[in-house]
């Protein structure tokens, strides 16, 4: 039987050792990682500058924030009156590393300043789903036991099978450690994996695709209507780095900002399209949504289109440009006339 707790401890130990060495040998100025949260099913991103503090780093299955978000804008510090770019070591599960790779492809960060501290992620818990199932009660304590998560609260205790309660994206994730390539081998320490071909049947969106246009419309309305437009999804997304988001353009206004369903829909649809061929499926947007909306569905559908049409998966290679950054004469274009 899988022992998740044991797995986590091993990941944590390796990660701390690598981080400690990097700081000790002054290969990095700063480590970005996760620390213990103050609530059950939470973790808090942390910036560590001192090797004595490396033991603050933790790995649990609630490390849902994509730390690549903190790399933009460049982390700078005032050293002797001059702003200097810091060298950053960043604790990276597969999807964090993929974000970094994609940010490099888009020329947003400097390779020289980044050390990817690879870990072999064993899945992130879908905390919103767990919270929703617990309902109105408060979770006061969680505990891993074998391949189960035990959730405790005032007058209740519930057992969840870990594999069933992972994020949907984690369930079929094949890139759990940073994908390594020749051009990146100097930037990765710790765990990594070679990725040749991916078998992603996109089973999680089969049900959605079967729906008629009307049903899809009704479904998306129902999913998105609770959105408060706090933009936590955007802010948590490592690839939403625009200085001014389309929805914040106000001279003149590009898109409606109300919480009417038409405005909500258009925000999420346009954000989805902006992430076409870019989204690395880390699931941070869904994990941070205060209303517990599962936004990854939109990105999965678009990623499937990108995979089918352009045979492209984001964040795997520094050499391959994403379809939206390039143009080929033989790109498929029949959809301009008709889409089934």
């Amino acid at each position: 039987m899988v022992d998740i707790k044991n797995e986590n401890q091993k990941i944590e130990e390796k990660m701390r050792n690598v981080a400690r060495d990097l700081l000790k040998e002054k290969k990095v100025d700063l480590i970005i990682g996760y620390s213990e949260g103050t609530l059950p099913l939470a973790s808090a991103p942390v910036f560590i500058r001192d090797e004595q503090e490396v033991d603050k780093l933790v790995w649990n299955n609630s490390c849902y924030v994509n730390l690549a978000k903190y790399l933009i804008p460049n982390i700078r510090e005032n050293i002797n009156g001059e702003l200097v770019d810091l060298k950053v070591g960043i604790i990276s599960k597969g999807c964090v590393a993929r974000s970094i790779i994609h940010l490099l492809v888009e020329h947003q960060i400097n390779k020289e300043n980044i050390i990817i501290i690879g870990i072999n992620c064993n899945g992130i818990l879908n905390r919103r789903r767990i919270e929703k199932e617990i309902g109105a009660h408060e979770i006061t304590e969680t505990e891993l036991s074998g391949d189960h998560l035990i959730v405790k609260g005032n007058k209740f205790e519930k057992k969840f099978k870990f594999n069933d309660y992972m994020n949907e994206l984690c369930k079929h994730c094949e890139i759990r450690a940073p994908p390594i390539s020749d051009s990146l081998k100097d930037n990765i320490v710790g765990e990594c994996q070679e990725v040749d071909s991916l078998e992603d049947p996109f089973e999680d969106i089969v049900d959605f695709e079967k729906k008629s246009a009307d049903e899809k419309w009704a479904f998306m309305n129902e999913v998105l209507k609770d959105c408060t437009r706090c933009y936590a999804c955007r802010e948590a997304c490592p690839l939403c780095y625009c200085n001014l988001c389309f929805v914040d353009q106000n001279l003149p206004t590009w898109f409606g900002k109300t919480s009417e369903i038409s405005d909500i829909l258009i925000f999420h649809m346009v954000r989805g399209l902006h992430l076409a061929g870019r989204c690395v499926e880390c699931g941070a947007c869904s994990s941070v949504c205060p209303m517990g909306i599962d936004l990854s569905l939109i990105n999965r559908k678009i990623n499937k289109v990108v995979k089918d049409r352009f045979d492209f998966v984001s964040g795997l290679s520094l050499e391959k440009l994403s379809p939206m950054m390039t143009y080929k004469m033989n790109d498929k274009q029949e959809f301009m006339l008709e889409e089934n």
Binding site: P45, V46, V65, T228, Y231, A232, E235, A236, V288, P290
Partner: peptide, 11 residues
């Protein structure tokens, strides 16, 4: 570590 979303103040 603040990401600048509005969860804290919206709710």
């Amino acid at each position: 570590t603040c990401m600048g979303c509005g969860s804290c103040s919206f709710l």
